[in-house]
Simulated assay, not measured.
Amino acid sequence: MKRIALFLMTNLAIVLVLSLVLRLLGVERILDESGSGLDLNALLIFSAVIGFGGSFISLAMSKWIAKRSTNAQVITQPGNATEQWLLSTVADQAKRAGIGMPEVAIFPSPDVNAFATGASKNSSMVAVSSGLLAKMTKQEAEAVLAHEISHVANGDMVTLALIQGVVNTFVIFLSRVIGHVVDRVVFKTEQGHGPAFWITSIVAQLVLGILASTIVMWFSRQREYRADAGGAALAGRQNMIAALERLKAGQPNHLPDELVAFGINNKARDTFSKLFMTHPPLTERIARLKEAR
């Protein structure tokens, strides 16, 4: 739960900042009563501005955050044979997948991991850990790169931002409706909004946000299956299976929490925690590839 909460931290922080700014500017006063009830149309527009605004600002910042949180170094000119191989492999896979050439980076970590991020298919970054380069064969590493290229080609970053925006919108909308009802029915506030509205709205937003995150996590798990299939198509099914087997045999990874959803390796632990995991268990991913025809 802690890792998932931190993964959503950037998005939620931006949502809170936007909400605060609009409140200070007096925009949120349009949510007050205009007659006998809450203006639901205005509330929905307000919620969408905050919800999608936070999600797309997070998306726009994704590469910047990734580079600084992992200390990833983008390869501009290859300094050795490994870097040259990385660039040429990503270039070949990107061409075959029909996307623009991503930035290619290496981040210092003993863990075997990789991630892809960026605001669009033609403005993305693929990064691998130094541990992956040291511990995987070239065939396995190629499969991991293909998995990440498939994420980019599938538009997963943008789709995830859209889903998060929808979830944000309805969490903000419903939390304020609940706050309004409690304020009017329980505390009998007759005009404007009293303290009960804000307290109840914040509590409801936290609870609904946790529940709604299961929807985002479900989509994230489905995109991993699709990226595995795409990686198998680009690099060979056996190579993709071998790469996942290598990840399964390795130690737990320590990718920065805000990038957990984008890493290839993220191990689930039990049935309940799987509801909040960004990745399916590696055993299930391997089984899915073996069953594919």
Rank of each mutant, 00 (worst) to 15 (best):
S58I: 08
S58E: 11
S58G: 14
L59W: 02
A60N: 04
S62I: 00
I65G: 04
K67E: 14
R68K: 15
R68G: 08
S69I: 14
T70G: 01
N71T: 08
Q73M: 12
Q73F: 13
V74L: 03
I75H: 02
I75D: 01
T76D: 11
T76A: 05
G79N: 12
G79W: 07
N80I: 08
T82L: 15
Q84Y: 06
Q84C: 10
W85E: 14
L86V: 03
L87C: 14
L87T: 05
L87N: 11
S88I: 08
A91C: 09
D92G: 09
Q93I: 11
Q93K: 11
K95Y: 10
G100L: 01
P102R: 06
P102G: 03
E103A: 13
V104G: 02
V104I: 15
P108H: 07
P108N: 14
P110W: 04
D111A: 14
V112S: 09
N113V: 12
N113Q: 02
N113W: 07
A114S: 07
A116M: 02
A116I: 04
T117Y: 02
T117M: 09
G118S: 05
G118Y: 01
G118E: 08
A119E: 09
N122D: 15
S123P: 10
S124N: 10
V126H: 05
A127H: 04
V128P: 11
V128I: 10
S129Y: 00
S129L: 03
S130H: 08
L133E: 03
A134N: 12
K135C: 08
T137K: 12
T137D: 03
Q139V: 05
A141T: 14
V144M: 11
A146I: 01
A146W: 02
H147Q: 01
E148L: 09
N154M: 09
G155R: 00
D156L: 02
M157V: 10
V158L: 12
V158F: 14
T159P: 03
T159H: 07
L160P: 10
L162D: 08
I163P: 00
Q164D: 06
G165D: 04
V166D: 07
N168S: 12
V171A: 13
I172E: 03
F173I: 04
F173M: 10
S175G: 02
S175M: 02
S175D: 05
V177F: 09
I178H: 07
V181A: 12
V182S: 08
V182D: 06
V182P: 08
R184M: 06
V185H: 07
F187W: 13
K188C: 06
K188N: 12
T189A: 12
E190I: 08
Q191K: 15
H193P: 04
H193F: 15
G194H: 08
P195L: 08
F197N: 04
W198A: 13
